[in-house]
């Protein structure tokens, strides 16, 4: 009896190990917060696939990590402006939409976007989306700002921040009134570069992560910045620092982004990967991710039952007009040139 009792945990352990061996592994390279236990656990139970998540700090990391030949990732989740680069570089395999459950429920504006579909081939399946708008300190910025001009206003010298990303070019281009912000001419790029360099003395710090921006705002280092819509101002206000931060969409439009799932070339875990892509279009997947990140679901049908009305409104569910009010990120026609210009801005004294 005694011996049996003592052996029991050992035997249980063996069973658990056997189970683990039978289960398949799925390696995801994604953003922090995109693989919470609220997704990985139910998904493992439903599919028998165990998720191991690695994280990136920026969209540029996806190509860099795959180019370095890591070879251990099955799924990556870049934003739509980076999707074309990854397929052009040959780092990913196409996906058959027919094999993705609930695919039809995704906003067609997303699923059928040219960034995700090239020559009739689908390279990516939408995952989640959001926007980038402007935030400011109402107690420090008089009136109600309605323009990107606030980012270039000498009145706020030393109190301005911007995301440390090539998207700074998009903001400056819109401020200068350019429409073709993803395909600027050389002259336009020169003007944008000059504008951004002119702005540098006003900038306290280019922020590298949402956390850093929250800190910059909370510590009163900056009063205006571009920011992930719905995220930063809530976090800063939640800290009760004795001041509040407000958010607005400038008349030159805010930016929209959408993260999509892509299948890494030659993945040995294709079955699990496809199961995961389908799972993320289900009510469980979409609601869990939206809840974990605070961003907006891409599949309004899927979240119909698992989200209350207030949340649906806040997360822009079914509000396709909002999507249309945004400038959705695209891969710049001359990506290299854009990155070079942005680096030149940062290198400038």
């Amino acid at each position: 009896m005694k011996a049996g009792k003592r052996l029991a945990p050992f035997a249980l352990g063996l069973v658990a190990m056997a189970h683990a061996a039978a289960a398949q592994d799925l390696n995801i390279l994604t953003w922090e917060g995109y693989a919470p236990e609220t997704i990985t656990r139910p998904f493992a139970e439903a599919s028998g696939c165990n998720i191991t998540a690695s994280y990136v700090g920026s969209n540029d990391d996806f190509a860099a990590k795959l180019a370095a030949g890591g070879g251990v990732y099955d799924i990556i989740t870049p934003s739509s402006d980076t999707v074309p680069l990854l397929s052009q570089a040959g780092f990913v395999d196409p996906i058959d939409p027919a094999a993705v459950e609930n695919y039809a429920g995704i906003y067609p504006e997303f699923s059928q976007s040219p960034a995700l579909n090239l020559d009739g081939i689908t390279w990516a399946v939408p995952l989640i989306w959001g926007s980038v708008s402007l935030i400011y300190r109402p107690d420090m910025v008089p009136g109600t700002p309605d323009s990107i001009a606030v980012l270039f206003d000498p009145a706020y010298a030393g109190k301005i921040s911007m995301w440390d990303d090539k998207s700074a070019i998009y903001w400056a281009a819109r401020y200068l009134g350019y429409e073709n912000i993803f395909d600027l001419t050389d002259e336009q790029l020169e003007a944008v570069k000059a504008k951004l360099i002119e702005q540098k003395p006003l900038v306290r710090k280019y922020w590298a992560s949402a956390g850093e921006l929250t800190e910059l705002m909370a510590n009163q280092e900056v009063y205006v910045s571009n920011a992930w819509t719905g995220l930063t101002f809530k976090e800063v206000n939640g800290l009760n620092k004795g001041f509040t931060v407000a958010e607005f969409n400038p008349k030159e439009k805010s930016e929209g982004w959408m993260d999509s799932m892509m299948l890494v070339k030659g993945t040995p875990n294709q079955e699990c990967a496809m199961k995961f892509i389908s799972y993320m279009q289900s009510a469980e997947g979409q609601c869990a991710l939206a809840a974990s990140t605070g961003y907006f679901p891409v599949n309004p049908g899927a979240v119909a039952a698992c989200m209350d009305e207030a949340t649906k409104k806040e997360r822009q569910v079914g509000n396709i007009d909002f999507v249309k009010s945004l400038v959705m990120w695209q891969q710049p026609a001359r990506l290299d040139k854009y990155i070079e210009v942005w680096n030149a801005v940062k290198a400038a004294p």
């Binding site: 540098k200 710090k205 940062k346």
Partner: peptide, 26 residues
């Protein structure tokens, strides 16, 4: 440069990081 540097703080290592990352220009 990333933590305490300002907009004019880019150093060689950041440039390297950018070439191997964002710019993908090895």
């Amino acid at each position: 440069p990333v933590l305490v540097g300002g907009p004019d703080g880019t150093m060689v290592a950041n440039l390297l990081q950018s070439q191997f990352g964002a710019a993908l220009n090895w």
